[in-house]
Nucleic acid binder design. Structure first.
Lengths: 231, 231
DNA sequence: CGAATAGTTCGGTCCACACCGAAGTATCGG
DNA sequence: CCGATACTTCGGTGTGGACCGAACTATTCG
């Protein structure tokens, strides 16, 4: 029993395996070779890591021709990784350290997707502005409530606010970003918002990565709409 | 960035350190010597582990005379550990494995506290009976709603149902038990229920551990009240 | 003060495991 | 059927770190 914890934890405790798992956090499935490159190890080594991760129930593999794709086996795995990432972000309080970390992570820290919603600087600050304007209200540690004014705002942008299906967490979850260490909008509404920004060509996902680029149009409109200083 | 994860994870990846962290999950602070005994290692070894855990921000230490008490440094640490425990519980489907695990954990698996609410077999089954009777209704993945009938039941037992302060998660959280792999009642109401059962001498915490004993009186009353077969 | 207890630091041993070279098994394309 | 690509298994090497004995520092008690 008590070792069970250490067994799972030690799966995440190797830098190579951690890199692999992090690269799969987007929910995408990646082939073994690519994961080897990401983890910066030889294919044989990665193969061993992947086998252990599958054995431990963290990953699922899927054959496709001569490729073998791997993905996280459940949302619980992603939850556990995020819970650990929160711990890595915590003890830094000096501004320098925070900035160094931000620079190191590059554009991913600036704007990226987390599953299918916006995270990074952009995700956090859009959410912050909405909160400041009372268009989104924190309700508990894990959810946002959407007041009528907020609903109007989303719909004027062309985002259908989904009906209240079950828990508020489903609709508008508060998701913790580990570079900004601030909450941002997730859940159905978060996904819908990102989809709409993409439709409007205000943001453009960078192919082959989780990073997101803000278009020129997007910069102008986000400034008009939320006074968000971008670029 | 990417190694940060593996660094934290590898802190949990050693059986000794994992045992130490698990024993601190109750929120209590324990002295180094006791933690060494729990981890089943020499005091020097434990001392090294504890230093690394403090260094990594997972534990905080506190001097008190010639003792040195250690406790989890934040709820986030407990969250991360629980998120990992969920992963350990998942893949087992065979009854044998589940039973073996139950036996191995001994009385802790039967009844214990998790922070200050009841967990283990007892916690899970009390919660289950309340759910079957409609006195507690799952609301989303993380909270219970308490209908009027449930409120009556708690109050007839002498448990003040706290007023709806903010989120339902605060009041009646669904907490996942990792030996039973079932939800049980946590949150303010869960704490109040345990406190009341203790007051009534239906259960008695076993000193120096998180295990809980059900008294003879308790067995009789829990049977009368919920048809819970104990012992 | 000196003995006892709680905890730490230091030094040396030993093993698990991350790593890669080499060779083996699938699958694709011609 | 043959070479190329994607991935795995096997075997041997090297290192990080868990471990404990011994010695050291604090605190309490008589």
């Amino acid at each position: 029993m008590r070792d069970q914890l250490s067994v799972v934890a030690s799966l995440l405790g190797d830098p190579g395996r951690a890199a692999i798992l992090l690269s799969l956090m987007s929910g995408a499935a990646l082939p073994a070779g690519e994961l080897a490159a990401i983890a910066n190890v030889a294919p044989q080594t990665a193969s061993g890591h992947l086998a252990r991760l599958v054995e431990g129930g963290l990953l699922q593999s899927e054959h496709q021709g001569r490729h073998r794709y791997y993905r996280l086996s459940s949302a619980e795995v992603a939850d556990a990784i995020e819970a650990l990432l929160v711990l890595t972000a915590r003890p830094q309080s000096s501004r320098d350290a925070a900035n160094a970390q931000k620079r190191a992570t590059g554009s991913l820290a600036y704007a990226r997707t987390c599953y299918a919603h916006l995270a990074g600087w952009l995700g956090v600050h859009i959410t912050r502005e909405l909160e400041l304007r009372g268009l989104l209200v924190a309700s508990g540690r894990k959810a946002y409530a959407v007041p009528a004014s907020g609903q109007d705002w989303f719909e004027s942008l062309g985002v259908q606010v989904p009906s209240w299906e079950g828990s508020p967490e489903k609709l508008a979850r508060r998701c913790l970003d580990w570079t900004e260490r601030r909450h941002h909008l997730a859940g159905t509404l978060g996904v819908a918002l990102f989809k709409r920004l993409h439709e409007l060509h205000w943001v453009a996902p960078i192919p082959g990565s989780r990073a997101v680029r803000v278009t020129v149009e997007g910069k102008r409109r986000l400034w008009e709409l939320l006074r968000l200083p971008i670029g």
